[in-house]
Amino acid sequence: MAERKKILLRLDPKVHDALARWAGDELRSTNAQIEFLLRRSLTDAGRLPRDVGALPRRGRPPKQDADGAGGAGGETPEDAPPPEDAPPPGTDGRPPPEDGGAREPPGPRGSRGGPRQP
């Protein structure tokens, strides 16, 4: 892959703030949002070169097996079907509390739920 160009871009602070908010809404960095918008504008105007590379994928790369290959069948975590015993999306898999009340969200990893020790 060719090295990406680095440019200095001067923007009105309010324009930058609006771009940063929009990027956050779409879970992109401000830089990725600017590139996305530039590519879309070039495509709409019919000026995006045919040999331009695709946008880099966002997020963490798929986990590699010991042999360096991706997951089973080359599936990425987004493409892989959930396991048969997986809880429904948006739940933690535990049955609801018997009193019908809301359950507190789990604490940080390794937390036992007790008071903090100094």
Rank of each mutant, 00 (worst) to 15 (best):
M1Y: 08
A2W: 08
A2L: 14
E3V: 14
E3A: 15
R4H: 10
K5D: 14
K6Q: 15
L9I: 14
L9G: 07
R10G: 11
L11D: 09
D12Q: 13
P13H: 09
K14Y: 01
H16K: 14
L19K: 04
L19N: 02
R21F: 09
R21S: 13
G24H: 05
G24R: 06
L27H: 14
S29T: 15
S29W: 07
T30L: 12
T30P: 02
T30W: 00
N31W: 00
Q33L: 12
I34E: 07
I34Y: 07
I34C: 11
E35A: 11
L37Y: 10
L37V: 12
R39H: 04
R39W: 02
R40N: 12
S41W: 09
L42I: 03
T43W: 07
T43E: 13
T43V: 11
D44S: 12
D44W: 01
D44T: 08
G46H: 08
P49C: 00
P49M: 00
D51V: 00
V52D: 00
V52F: 06
V52A: 12
V52E: 07
G53D: 13
A54K: 11
L55K: 11
R57A: 13
R57V: 11
R58N: 11
R58W: 04
G59D: 09
G59L: 09
P61K: 10
P61S: 10
K63Q: 14
Q64F: 09
A66G: 11
A66R: 15
G71T: 03
G71A: 14
A72P: 13
G74R: 05
G74H: 09
E75H: 14
P77D: 04
E78P: 00
D79Q: 15
P81V: 03
P81N: 05
P81A: 07
P82D: 02
A86S: 09
P88V: 02
P88K: 10
P88N: 01
P89Q: 01
P89C: 00
G90Y: 02
D92K: 00
D92T: 05
G93F: 02
P95R: 13
P95H: 06
E98I: 10
G100M: 09
G101H: 10
A102Y: 08
A102M: 10
E104V: 05
P105H: 08
P105V: 10
P106D: 10
G107H: 07
G107R: 06
P108H: 01
P108Y: 02
P108N: 00
R109S: 03
G110T: 03
S111K: 02
R112S: 03
P115Y: 04
P115C: 06
R116T: 07
R116N: 04
R116M: 05
R116K: 13
R116F: 01
P118E: 12
P118V: 06
P118R: 15
